[in-house]
Design a protein around this nucleic acid. Sequence first.
RNA 1: GGGCCCAUAGCUCAGUUGGAUAGAGCGUCUGGCUACGAACCAGGAGGUCGCAGGUUCGAGUCCUGCUGGGCCCGCCA
Length: 664
Amino acid sequence: MILNVQRGIHEAIDGAIRQRFGVAEVPAFAVEVPPTRALGDLAVPVAFQLARALRKPPRAIAQELAGAVGAIPGVARIVAAPNGYLNLYLDRPSFLTARLRGEIAPDRGVQDKTIVEHTAINPNKAAHIGHLRNAALGDTLVRALQFRGTPVEVQNYIDDTGVQVADVIVGFRELERKSIDEVRQLAASPRFDYYCWDLYARVTEWYEGDRARLAVRAAALHDLEQGGNGTAEMGAAIVDAIVRTHLRTMARLNIAYDLLTYEGDIVRLKFWAHTFEILKAQGAVFLQTEGKLAGCWVMRIDEGAAADDEAAGDEESREKVIVRSNGVVTYVGKDIANQFWKFGLLGRDFRYRRFATQGGGRTLWATTSGESDPNAPPFGRARRIFNVIDSRQMYLQALLVQALKTLGHPEEAERSIHFSYEMVTLSHATARELGHRIDPDSDDAKKPFVEVSGRKGLGVKIDDLLDLLTTKATEEVARRNPDFTPDDCRRVGAQIAVAAIRYFMLKYSRGKLIVFDIEEALSFEGETGPYLQYAVVRAGNILNKLREREGVSEADVVASLEKAAPDELLEDGDDAAHNLWAVVFEASRLDEVVEQVVRSLEFSALAKYTFGLAQTFNAFYHRYPILNEERGDRKRWRAAGVAYVRAQLTRALDLMGIDVPARM
RNA sequence: GGGCCCAUAGCUCAGUUGGAUAGAGCGUCUGGCUACGAACCAGGAGGUCGCAGGUUCGAGUCCUGCUGGGCCCGCCA
């Protein structure tokens, strides 16, 4: 953990600048990591920034500062580099021992209650890789926030009254002629989500066969929203079963939630009606009487609502329908109500029921319109909200922010964060493997990818992908570990599968469209999750052998450092000493990386950092012996380094939802 | 027409408050298992950072314009 050191350095240099140069307004400056340890552990380029104002060359400023700064806790020395950098060298032995003894806790971040909403899969079919990116990003955000001590509530929005559910109901009725009881029976089967996946695609075809059939859908949707009828009853049965399959799938990936928010409850508990009154009272919506939107309640939106501020003078404005002319509220309206509730601005609350018990005994709650469980914890009333949704919904998310602003909640608007990312598509090769045929002369064939489509039944299901990866990993584990039971192999294989897929989803920056290729995703070598696990397992093996062969535990290693000559870690040591320090130092940067990741919402940075650390560590233990090192003091410091790197790598992997097996 | 995103090695991608010699994986070529398990490591080849201007002590990174590609702008969600 390095943030505390960086903060100390920043304060000391800031003070030195004020004192030495009489500068009242010190420019914001960075404490960075130089490209190699030979150049120092941390560096400050502030002399460049001061050069103009002080009319002195950066080099001279750096030299003066180096002399003026004085002692900084943990810093061994400060050097003014010839080019103007201030380079700082840390006190290496004390740096490592303090961290191994757990004396350095991670910095606390923002303590405001934060809601992260992610996953939000339509409950009418199996979850696919598009949903996977959402959940992987969302869950990692949750873990990163928690790492910094931020209280987080994880919500999963369930659109139980939408068209997609209506479509599956239509499928059961019109195509399968199933009764509610027959549907209930089917819903009890474990692969009900797969069943609906196919049915949903068949319904889409059925509509295409005769557009008049869309009237059936409209009627089903109407009944579903209305409630208190057979359609709604069948819908509830389908939704409940599908949601549970989604939760099982996500549980395989170590993803859990605190609350399921049902859209139906927003309607039934009159959240929408209440929000509607507020919107009307504030003049945020009005009844359009002319033109093609006559009879609709609309919200006037500035063109460029997505942009930061209202580009005044822009005559261009659109009208977004919030309530249709038939009186039915749109998705946007319900979403505004939901966002208001999340901030505690609605003046009403859901009722709650226990929905399930997740891994580790964590209770999953769900909203309800029925009796509320008196033991339900307080939900909502957040200070900050992250909505994890792909970039195609940017426009809608901008509307939410605008609604908050219009209704006099600028701070909440500011704290409504759309965690946007690009979608996942399929490579042509993978689409072909799924049986998808494209006319070679069509426009689709010319595109560099194939779009996932639940409606068409085209996509890689998460469970299929996990099964494939698990099978492959399990075979590999069995081959390498003949003493493992089949159960051991399967368990470790599953952990490896999760590592592979979660790392794969995280390693691309969020602005990058992922062209998913099954061949590529199945890899366990190179920059992959299993590579990371392997590094930690090897580190663990070294420490295990140290205990088995010599009876020296990790705690013993740490305790023995006090009496060990620290040559192995000193700056004037040999290559081995430098490489040990390099890997220890890199391992300490996790908190800094998490900070950056939460600021930028760029989780690829966490993935790349972890991979780089694993790589550095792998190279280190290949090159320098630990167990077989004959000089005792050196051995102890190296073992201590291994222990620290292992602990930090394990933490980093945990942030990505990846478990570390004891062996693999 | 407007908004957002992408363009860096043969392929897939990092490089994010502008900073020290442009990196990684895959592929390719060469070498390393009598073990601290090779899901690994060492090394080689491979780059006009889409193009053109501008700002700066300094630009892959910021600004402007352009080119190519993707997504969004619905009484769907």
